[in-house]
Design a protein around this nucleic acid. Structure first.
Lengths: 226, 226, 226, 226
DNA sequence: CATGAATGAGTATTCATTCAT
DNA sequence: TATGAATGAATACTCATTCAT
């Protein structure tokens, strides 16, 4: 009777979900015990992401997560132990799904083109991606919660690494100037993307994301191109 | 009857006071009641700013603020009524006081030079400025606390405005390309600065602020210069 | 309206109460703040003693203590911080009042007579002394709760010390044989007293405390007398 | 359907089994269902005894017992139904198994010699006997848990009976004074033994068990001998 | 003006217990 | 037989908030 079906198909969520547990296959009825556990965990995590994206980690209670996922108030504690662990799981979950976004521009030629496309598309669909917001919230809260900080650090490191690789490929192909510091540029780019999105969330009336995107891509082109 | 809304005074005069906030100068003895009240309020606010900069708003309790200011645990409640009101006062205080370092680089020639200098110096002394951290924390928390958001919005607007003015001056002087979107560039620059500092706070071992500063200034030069 | 008057005058409790806070003097109405605090603390402690005596420390909740004392459910936490601290306070409280019992046989001649009188009177009024039961419960639980154990150790040390002093006085006066190991005898006597009372509490139908008392006093006389 | 009440077998045969409780001997392979059930129950009970001896009943969870026995977290609940039932089984087990070391000193001549030897040897090897600790813990907790109390009462009664028999034999043989109250003395002795051991467990640094043993045996000799 | 006593709501966390596989 | 998923109640603890002195 509980077990709300809640068939939401948010893209950002999908990404991570597919990454992780790809069981289930068909309906959802005759599930083995392991499957049920996996499904419950997935649903709890998804609910937690939604709530954290909405109210931040401190505004999210374990009980909320359980209920939002259609389970009991106590289940999140049962699965994740402590709230810290749940938040850590949420962060990992998000970062898995999210980090993929930067990597998934595989259709473009590697190098500058790929980089600019990634940057542009990052800013493009941001409003639809719930995971993106949750990630940003978590990053913001990491400033005051050392525990969360440790969890989030690798996310940033990985993302910077991806961008750096693109820059280096660009340099190797002669599209990007040889004197560009790939690591530093990657950090600056990631920061700009995040801060831009945060600004937009803070004041959507005043910030026109499309203009910022175009302006930024053009600026990057000019500052990086060989 | 309590629940003061604090008719904030002119930012300009505040700046000096806010630099460290426990100035006081005068003895503290023969003060009129109003003066004592004002002083207590100032000290409480300064303590609150420090605590919020350190632990965030949720990690800061009213009692902590009272004790940190050298008063009783109950005084913040007595003066500010609710915690929300205190946080609002803190946010106003921050936004007033640090009406932004960017404005104070008046010694340089207006235009591109001033802009690049501002950018560089913003990233330079950041570790010494407690107020900068408080501001960033407040901005980060504004993502999940609408109340804070409303208070912090104008800060961003103002800062973007200052940067935009510099860019426009640069364009007028022919130093900056005419086709640059001043508003968008200003927003991007502010975001980059904030995100870079946040990244450094999050992982000081990995982030070399000096390199980022040089890299960014060079990039800006290249992308903006006529 | 709350603030049940609860004017119980249990002797064991009195002892400690007088030891500790002797303010209050008259009625109980026009109390200064410090007095109110002291009274609340006294009442909470008394209630805690009663509850612990009845249900043990694990069976006693902070909320129970608050309500039993006629205050709110949260007050014990407010005053004592953690439950461990409350239990420690209870243990100290009890031991203060209780240790006195052994010392208060001052009307007798010091030495063997005093010792035998102490032993006898210890077993005499035991059923009326609520504090005695609470103390024993705490000692019993100390076996499995290291924290409690640390708190209770000094109680035992002190009590053994008192008995040892009596024995030594008896030896000095030539009433007790010179080859008696005062420390060891004191430990044995204290243990016997405690265990006897515990046995009686466990099975009052089968244990006749008066007989045990007489038998023990006679045995002690025979084994110690010079 | 679960909620086994465990028709305990004859204590005599149990004694050997209980000494350490993880005997098993047989492989564990080709067992009938009933045998497996019996073995699981035995192992769970043994684990429960160990845990209770260590942490007390409230510090022991059903899940702990299952894991400690090498089974699942849920099995104890499956077999014993409620925790109370498990604790009752543990108490029965203890009281059956350790139907008291005092009975096993049959090599000595009956009477005073046997009594003194029993007393001495009780205090001697106490640190090695896990069962002794479990018994004492159970007795201590019986003070606050009526259920446990009912189960443990007979243990005390039986032990007192054994000691009384020895005393009476001593009186019959003329070794012990005729005016000694055998029942009362037996109760005092048992209490002294238990309390002494408890004291030692509580503060091993301060209590020298060997000295207490010698002192007590000497005292008993003096107070009982004809 | 300032303190601190007292309240009560909210939250993480632990467990016994039930139930489906 | 045995496992483990899921529930829900209980509890310590933290704090904002109110009120009397």
């Amino acid at each position: 009777m509980p077990r709300t079906t809640k068939k939401k198909t948010d893209p950002a969520e999908r990404v991570a979900v597919d990454t992780d547990a790809n069981a289930e296959g068909a309906g959802g009825q005759g599930l083995t015990r392991a499957e049920r556990r996996a499904e419950a965990e997935r649903r709890l995590l998804a609910a937690a992401v939604t709530l954290v994206a909405d109210r931040g980690t401190e505004g999210t209670t374990l009980a909320d997560v359980g209920e939002a996922a259609g389970y009991s108030r106590g289940l999140p504690g049962h699965y994740f132990g402590t709230k810290s662990d749940l938040i850590a799981a949420v962060a990992s979950h998000i970062s898995d799904g999210f980090a993929n976004r930067l990597a998934q521009t595989s259709t473009r030629a590697p190098g500058l083109e790929s980089l600019l496309h990634s940057v542009g598309s990052y800013l493009d669909g941001i409003s639809q991606r719930e995971g993106a917001r949750a990630l940003l919230i978590a990053l913001a809260e990491a400033l005051t919660e050392p525990l969360l900080n440790e969890t989030m650090k690798p996310v940033t490191v990985r993302s910077i690494g991806r961008l750096r690789t693109m820059i280096e490929q660009g340099k190797a192909r002669g599209e990007i100037r040889a004197d560009v510091d790939a690591e530093a540029q990657a950090a600056l780019i990631l920061g700009t993307l995040r801060a831009t999105v945060a600004q937009w969330w803070t004041d959507q009336d005043r910030i026109d994301l499309a203009t910022l995107r175009d302006t930024y891509v053009a600026s990057l082109q000019r500052s990086l191109a060989a």
